[in-house]
Design a protein around this nucleic acid. Sequence first.
DNA 1: GCTAACATTAACGTCAAGGTCAATCCCAGA
DNA 2: TCTGGGATTGACCTTGACGTTAATGTTAGC
Lengths: 140, 140
Amino acid sequence: MSDKFYKIEEVSKMTGLTKRAIRYYEDLNLIAPQRAESAYRLYTDEDLEKIQRIISLKESLGFSLAEIKNALELDKDVQTILSTGTAEAAILGNYMEMIREQIKLIDEKVSKLLATGEQFENLLARLNNLRDRAGKENTR
Amino acid sequence: MSDKFYKIEEVSKMTGLTKRAIRYYEDLNLIAPQRAESAYRLYTDEDLEKIQRIISLKESLGFSLAEIKNALELDKDVQTILSTGTAEAAILGNYMEMIREQIKLIDEKVSKLLATGEQFENLLARLNNLRDRAGKENTR
DNA sequence: GCTAACATTAACGTCAAGGTCAATCCCAGA
DNA sequence: TCTGGGATTGACCTTGACGTTAATGTTAGC
């Protein structure tokens, strides 16, 4: 966890995001890098991890940036609850319910994905079959 | 496979899409319902299935409509290859490669999703723990 | 034959997620 | 010190995926 700082161009190269996108995420309060006196944005490894999480949520889950913001905040809230050990039962139950919903949502996506995957596997198998039969015909 | 026809409002209700969205998909050539003489759109069960596939691809995979169009066309091409049994080896190999790529892409998404899911499960477990400890404290 | 509830196209509006451009500022190296 | 390559903000532009409205046609029941 070296406390090195990255400038936006480096972050762009490391993450594959454009500088514009990175700044945009900041506009939406998804990230909040430090600033140098010159007002340059300074990103830590922690910021980078957060950005990677954003990318992952976006690409795999197809979440909108607004949804991602919610997820990140939910996560953060829970982290503070866990670290302080402070939680009124009602609030805690609330968060647990939200997390269960997220999990359910993810499970649904997974099963849809698996179903789609099987369809393609099926197609592939049938094409394989066709190719094999064609091969036989040629060697007859 | 009854050859009943549905009008757009029925399709809307059955699929949960708005009529506007359904027409928009037609603009993009994702679907091509028949027309009555009055120019009303007439949807078959087959059209409905296609629409359901579009929805599924959109929601689970987060595909753009352009990507969905590609996937549907790929599927259709392969179907005709399979039904006619006609396929030059090169073309066949080509399609098989494309399908493998789709499968790979899907697998990647699935594992990302599962990873995210586990994170949430983890949080949930820790919250459960916290709650149990709090419970004990109250009954002490 | 009228009317209400459907349908059509065409055109413009909107929102998210950035792209692009301009004007200005900062910094590192010759 | 000057110069080129990055950084900043602000403003407007674009694309995808629809929403909305207007003007008009169709159909089913009374």
